[in-house]
Design a protein around this nucleic acid. Structure first.
Lengths: 143, 143
DNA sequence: ATGGACCTTGGAGTTACTACAGGGTCAAGA
DNA sequence: TCTTGACCCTGTAGTAACTCCAAGGTCCAT
């Protein structure tokens, strides 16, 4: 394998992705088919590393592959008319901000639990469910 | 159905969950089986609303059901010895903080795209992939 | 030149839902 | 009172996104 080029196993290790998942992404068109060596091994370059890293992280944030695909399209054809793109961007921006808000509440409660734990030896009152309960997203309480 | 009590459809609407998903959560023990009416309809109370809302949001943030289960256990038996709990809390705290960092980078790039869009009419350069690429998590560039 | 690590394809299994099919419940209107 | 449409029940089958395995080929260090 030429320098700068990676085997599928090396790419997997670098990006924390299972080899089978990489082949799966190739089959469904998320990752472009890479060049092959004389022995028919897949040979990946730096663009693949960046693209796969992006895909894995967006998936890990709870977005479906359909959304990943839309974001990749944004990067692949950046000269599309704005109207098309704007709706997607605004929609995803809303999603992202909602997720950040939820994660911050989760973080605060986990933080509180960690401190409480170290002092008391017990987790006396755990309010983790309340951290992500209905009355946090709107003013309504007890439907 | 008594006041304060919800049918499965009402619970679904309130929490943005498909009816089938609620029944699925009951089957695998994520949601406790609710009381039944005379006609064998499931009848949910406020605790179910809170619990299901929590489950849906944690899932939406990209955590597997196994993690949701562990967090629910934390809430269900809060008087467990600290050692058991601490490892979980610290681990999840790390996960949560990593996700927040990634989402903030994604938000910044989407924000930039939205503004660029409004001025130029085209998305000239989209750096959304770079927003979540390898060199952001450590100092390494170009493997 | 050979054994072990790694690659190939293809197909089956897992997780977390999601969508029927076939039938029962219920409240409102004729 | 009867009916009709919206809702509920169980159970099974299908989907999305992986994950694992079998049977075999490649590569390279000893």
């Amino acid at each position: 394998m030429a320098k700068q080029e990676l085997s599928i196993g090396a790419l997997g290790k670098l990006t924390g992705t299972k080899v089978e998942t990489i082949r799966f992404y190739e089959k469904i068109g998320i990752l472009p088919a890479p060049a092959r060596t004389a022995g028919n091994y897949r040979s990946y370059g730096h663009d693949h590393v960046r693209r796969l890293t992006f895909v894995r992280r967006v998936r890990d944030l709870g977005f479906p592959l359909e959304t990943v695909r839309a974001m990749l399209d944004l990067a692949d054809q950046p000269d599309r008319p704005c109207g098309e793109v704007d709706a997607l961007v605004v929609e995803q921006l809303g999603e992202v901000e909602r997720k950040i808000a939820d994660l911050e509440r989760l973080r605060d409660e986990l933080d509180r639990l960690a401190h409480q734990c170290r002092r008391g030896g017990r987790v006396a009152d755990c309010r983790i469910i309340e951290a992500l309960s209905p009355h946090h997203e709107d003013g309504r309480c007890c439907p």
